[in-house]
Design a protein around this nucleic acid. Structure first.
Lengths: 255, 255
DNA sequence: CGTTCAATATTGTCCTACAAAATTAGAAAG
DNA sequence: CTTTCTAATTTTGTAGGACAATATTGAACG
């Protein structure tokens, strides 16, 4: 009694990032074999990623191959390839003979993830403070983090989570270490489930934003050590916050 | 003129970790379809991983699907699945429409990787020093790192690289953070190319071993901060060492 | 209410096929 | 002889069908 099987709005694809209707872009419908090569996996991947992040696929839900191949109109090969990419990003986990299920972190795993993020993003902030000496990096960084300076209070949690993700990614990108950047992206994704927790208060968001600003200022002033320490303190507070979430958010039993 | 296509010793598999001859374990030879389920991908994966780490497949070499399916006697599905796993471990990279090639790091990527490892393994050492209070963790840790106390001088570089890998993994495992443990494993693998550099002197190995011992002692004494600092210093030295390797070891051009 | 076992659902693997892209070889031009 | 363009070959991306092994479900039974 664990397979929930949400139905998917039928026959829509993401093609190069744009949402399109299926019938409009398949020139010959007789077997649907004529789609831009190399894009099929990407379609499936983006559809599932988006679906997981938006909650269309719930944590713990099994992703049945037959259902998805039917609903998305692709064969099992590309679907499995997409599963594997999602697995690499930490959004699903593959269990032998059971297939792919939407990842659901235990409280312990969440804490562990925060420990890792603290170390890596502390490093990223330190490196970023060095790299902002380069005008191009500085310009790109300032452009990316612009939203954090907006004064209006954040009331919609979902919107703020996006702002949060963008800030952390901007710091990582400014570090100039591409592998670090992609690791940070990968480690941030599985935590999106907080979207569903509803525990983010307006005050929490304000505090988080203030910490973001402090980190950003330290980076822009080139003070690497301080930026790293501030980022670590920020993530440490987030870790404690996550530890106080209701147990229901996490995978059953474990604590 | 880049596809080298080394030939593979024909028809051998790894079955449950044991090397076996093909003819001995395929009950019906008509199409070879009867092998333990879920093991095919593992066979291919281990064969390729072993081959890459042993240099049987050279960095930069293309892995042609047709050749491998023929030589290993598997179909393209499992082979591609194995490619994806190797890609996740950072041993190969997949280029669209060109397939899988054995990964070759640039000097810059190598430095970046060391930065990340320094942060993560410093954390691992710090955590491990806390966790060794648990007798079971302590026992397992001491068992795993036993080789570092052997007094004989290390002359064979390949053997020492294995000892090195085992030590770093043991620290990560002792941290009690499974995700950290798997990250450390993943980040360590791509650096195996140093095996081929031949730049490891007997003196280098001795120094590295001494640093390992210092880290181990700090962990066993429960001094987390010191253990973390020592581990970071150790990796920092390794980073500088790697920076002085001949350029030919790295991907052409980049520095 | 709990267990056992058959029916069903689902995955792992194989095969074949074909179009798209990349690579190589060969021909033509300089 | 070298270079460049074109055609043939190779190789990958994807579809679709097939079947056995494993998981899951549901029903009968105690």
């Amino acid at each position: 009694m664990n397979g929930i099987r949400l139905s998917i709005q039928p026959r829509k694809w993401y093609l190069n990032g744009m949402l399109q209707d299926a019938a409009l872009d398949s020139p010959d419908e007789r077997n649907g074999s004529a789609r831009a090569r190399g894009s099929t996996v990407e379609h499936v991947f983006l559809h599932l990623k988006d679906g997981i992040l938006c909650g269309r696929y719930a944590p713990g839900q099994r992703l049945i191959e037959a259902d998805l191949t039917r609903d998305l109109g692709v064969s099992r090969g590309p679907l499995r390839e997409a599963f594997r990419r999602l697995s690499a990003e930490g959004l699903v986990e593959s269990v032998p003979n059971k297939g792919a299920i939407v990842r659901r972190l235990s409280a312990r795993q969440t804490q562990d993830l925060f420990d890792i993020r603290t170390a890596l993003e502390g490093l990223a902030a330190r490196l970023a403070a060095q790299k902002v000496a380069d005008p191009q990096v500085r310009a790109e960084f300032e452009r990316a983090i612009a939203p954090i300076w907006i004064e209006e209070p954040r009331d919609v949690a979902v919107t703020y989570l996006d702002e949060n993700r963008i800030f952390h990614q901007a710091v990582a990108d400014a570090s100039g270490n591409e592998q670090l950047s992609s690791l940070v992206r990968q480690l941030q994704l599985p935590l999106i489930m907080f979207q569903l927790s509803g525990a983010l208060t307006s005050e929490t968001l304000r505090l988080s934003n203030q910490e973001h600003r402090a980190v950003a200022r330290a980076i822009l002033e080139g003070e690497g050590e301080r930026a790293g320490a501030l980022m670590q303190a920020h993530l440490d507070r987030a870790r404690r916050f996550a530890d106080n979430l209701p147990r229901g958010v996490f995978r059953d039993g474990e604590r």
